[in-house]
Nucleic acid binder design. Structure first.
Lengths: 221, 221
DNA sequence: ATTCAAATGTAACAAATGTGACAACTTATT
DNA sequence: AATAAGTTGTCACATTTGTTACATTTGAAT
């Protein structure tokens, strides 16, 4: 068990001996969920750190109108909503749903605090994780502030390409529509626009970037 | 100086004697900015905690197209971007611009870490602040995921009213448009829609809520 | 290879929002 | 009270996105 935990980003840089000591001191549980389970529901109180040790889950935000906006996929090993534990109104901002069997290590807030005071490395790791989360959220915000759908798609494609000129889309247009918060045919249209402008070539999930500088320019349109 | 710092949320619950001890240990600077200064620019590295001790500033996110989306106003005493210091890609997500003369206490990352390890209360305060920030960001995200402008406005008005049935708007339509990320006439239209539906009564900045249950329903439209 | 469910391309039309403009009104200043 | 600067109401029109629908293509299962 402790060897498994050593793999977690939270305990990076902590040696085996120190881990033994830490986990003698603190209390924690393990939990499992089946495929398609609602692991955490939006609004639920968040007073325990949930560490995903196995499986893949997704986070989605339910809007006031009942539509859901997919925020991200989370793969083990990772941690759920680390930035929400120590707030005053500490409620989960999203639903967490498992794609497959998922296992968690659960540590209560008070125990986590003990960990921090007992080991500076763990504290530093945790602070780093929270920072990354906040950055992720503000990237999302900027993304949603892009003017047009075409701009969002261009940004997404360049990010997804990661330097390659040819790649397969990870998500269907349906999923992209959810991710962007728009209707599905609009996504298709945006693809077609970029194609008709000679910026990309799309055929189903296969994408080829023809003019990556034009694709960057499309951010601002 | 130390008495001033005692007022800050970061040092809440720390007694005077302990403060003396802490500030003998760590290094910090003070900084001032005039009216309308660019205190921090988006993308700048964030390796110091900037504590606003006096004045009012605003945070705005510059989109790829050059348009800016106002994120929030910050009043002293508060802290800038606490969640961004400990990340790996630690860059400010926004421009910070002073509305008036603003004073800061600046503490470098390494010194801050010393503080945390030296005093659990300060650590807890800081964690709480980060959590609140993350929650704020994710509220913003949900807000932008609202379907229509009318829904955004309805949400905003109910929040702003805070139980009252009559109040004056804090922001002009121009500012609201910036806040919502839409064009100014659209804001006016949304007001007029709500008025023509008998939900509110608006005359310039004076707003009266006529039917608050209808206003809540408007979230989902 | 065949079959079937899901994903995609695409169209027509409706609705929402952006743009640019201008007059009417408020507010602060003198 | 007069003035000027900024804000708001409002319009016409362009553009974007949503909605619904359906035919086609793909990919997985048999």
């Amino acid at each position: 068990m402790k060897y498994e935990l050593l793999q977690l980003p939270l305990f990076e840089g902590v040696d085996e001996q120190e881990m033994e000591r830490l986990f003698d001191e603190i209390i924690f549980q393990t939990k499992s969920f089946g495929t398609g389970s609602l692991v955490v529901s939006q609004g639920e109180e968040c007073n325990r750190l949930m560490i995903l040790t196995e499986g893949v889950v997704k986070g989605e935000m339910v809007g006031a109108d009942g539509r859901s906006l997919k925020i991200e996929d989370l793969q083990a090993p990772t941690v759920l909503a680390p930035a929400f534990i120590f707030g005053k109104r500490n409620h989960y901002p999203v639903n967490i749903i498992s794609y497959e069997e998922a296992k968690f290590v659960v540590i209560h807030k008070a125990e986590l605090m003990k960990l921090f005071l007992s080991n500076a490395t763990v504290l530093q790791n945790f602070l780093g994780m929270i920072s990354s989360r906040a950055q992720f959220l503000s990237e999302k915000l900027r993304f949603h502030s892009f003017k047009s759908l075409k701009a969002k798609l261009a940004f997404y494609l360049l990010d997804e390409a990661g330097g390659r000129t040819q790649f397969k889309l990870k998500y269907s247009q349906n999923e992209l529509a959810e991710l962007f918060g728009v209707a599905r045919p609009s996504v298709g249209r945006a693809f077609m626009q970029l194609q008709s402008e000679g910026v990309i070539d799309v055929r189903y999930r296969q994408v080829q970037i023809i003019d990556s500088s034009k694709l960057s320019e499309a951010y601002s349109e």
